[in-house]
Simulated scan of single mutants.
Amino acid sequence: MTSTLSFLLLTLTAYWLGCRLRDRTGGHSLAQPVLVAIVLVGGVLLVTGVDYADYRDGTELVSFWLGPATVALAVPLHRQVRRLRGVALPMLVAIPLGAVVSVVTAYTLVRLCGGGDLLATTMAPKAVTTPVSIALSGQQGGLPQVTAVLTVTAGVLGAVAGPAVLTLARIRDRRARGLALGAVSHGIGTSRALAEDETEGAFAGLSMGLTALATSLLLPVLLVLLR
């Protein structure tokens, strides 16, 4: 298993199996296609002894299409644009505030647990969509590769536990649920929100984009203050 085609086939098959498992379990929180695909692909690579760098190079096509796929999230948002009325101002306040809380808590917790500035900086942008978090980590002196792992982990955890936490908190409004999932678990959370409800998914996509923008603007300032 060393060809680009085999790596692409492995990735798509693993994700397809994840979707089938989600459907067969009635949308169980642990049956997230991304989580299932990570486990399956990781297991195959481990068993076959394939180097991850070779797998990554062989799946560049998938990475390339992440950009257009993200842009395509504007389609469900356009269908729900009328529901933006009355929430635009609260949203523009909540998202930057959420970005501040995310960065400050991530950085501070690492330092309180004995981690250095390098690890704390690497952790700080973990709630932003992966391409942006990697870029921000590199610009601020973090470790982009580790940030990528942390970002995917945050996305998976948010997609698995986020809806249940929101339900326990008695947050029923689909717009609010979508905004929360998009802000803390970016693309993976957005895919979960889309599976739950179109309105929820549309607002999750909007939140993901605005959170990335807010964090990009605020992170350099916040790190100066925290350091």
Rank of each mutant, 00 (worst) to 15 (best):
T2L: 13
S3L: 00
S3P: 00
L5F: 15
S6W: 10
L10P: 02
L12R: 04
Y15G: 00
W16R: 06
W16C: 04
L17H: 07
G18I: 01
R20E: 13
L21V: 13
L21I: 11
R22E: 14
T25Y: 06
G26S: 04
L30Q: 01
A31C: 06
A31D: 07
P33R: 07
V34F: 01
V34A: 02
V34L: 03
A37V: 10
V39T: 14
V39W: 07
G43M: 10
L45P: 00
L46S: 11
V47P: 07
G49W: 03
D51M: 06
Y52R: 03
A53F: 01
A53K: 13
D54Q: 11
Y55I: 00
Y55N: 00
R56C: 04
G58L: 00
L61M: 13
V62G: 08
L66Y: 08
G67Q: 11
P68R: 09
A69F: 09
T70W: 09
T70G: 14
L73P: 03
L73Y: 04
L77D: 02
L77S: 05
R82H: 15
R85Q: 12
G86P: 05
A88L: 15
L89G: 02
P90C: 06
M91L: 14
L92G: 10
V93P: 04
V93H: 04
A94M: 12
A94W: 12
P96H: 11
L97I: 14
G98Y: 03
A99Q: 05
A99K: 10
V100P: 03
V100E: 08
V100S: 01
V101C: 13
V101R: 13
S102I: 08
V104Q: 12
Y107K: 07
T108N: 12
V110Y: 06
L112D: 01
G114F: 03
G115D: 00
G115K: 01
L119G: 00
L119I: 11
M123C: 08
M123G: 03
A124I: 00
K126C: 04
K126I: 03
K126V: 01
V128N: 09
V128F: 09
V128H: 11
T129P: 06
S133V: 08
I134F: 15
A135E: 14
A135L: 14
A135N: 09
S137E: 07
Q140G: 03
G141W: 11
G142L: 04
Q145L: 12
A148G: 05
A148Y: 02
A148L: 03
T151M: 04
A154K: 06
A154C: 14
L157W: 07
G158C: 06
G158F: 09
A159H: 06
G162C: 01
G162P: 01
A164H: 07
V165H: 07
L168E: 12
L168S: 12
L168I: 10
A169F: 02
R170G: 02
R172E: 15
R177I: 02
G178K: 03
A180D: 05
L181V: 05
G182R: 09
I188Q: 01
G189F: 04
S191D: 10
S191W: 12
A193K: 05
A193C: 05
L194M: 15
L194C: 08
L194Q: 08
A195T: 13
E196P: 03
D197Q: 09
E198T: 13
T199R: 04
T199C: 13
T199W: 06
T199M: 13
G201C: 10
S207G: 12
S207F: 11
M208Y: 10
L210N: 08
S216C: 14
V221G: 06
V221P: 08
L223M: 00
L225R: 05
L226N: 01
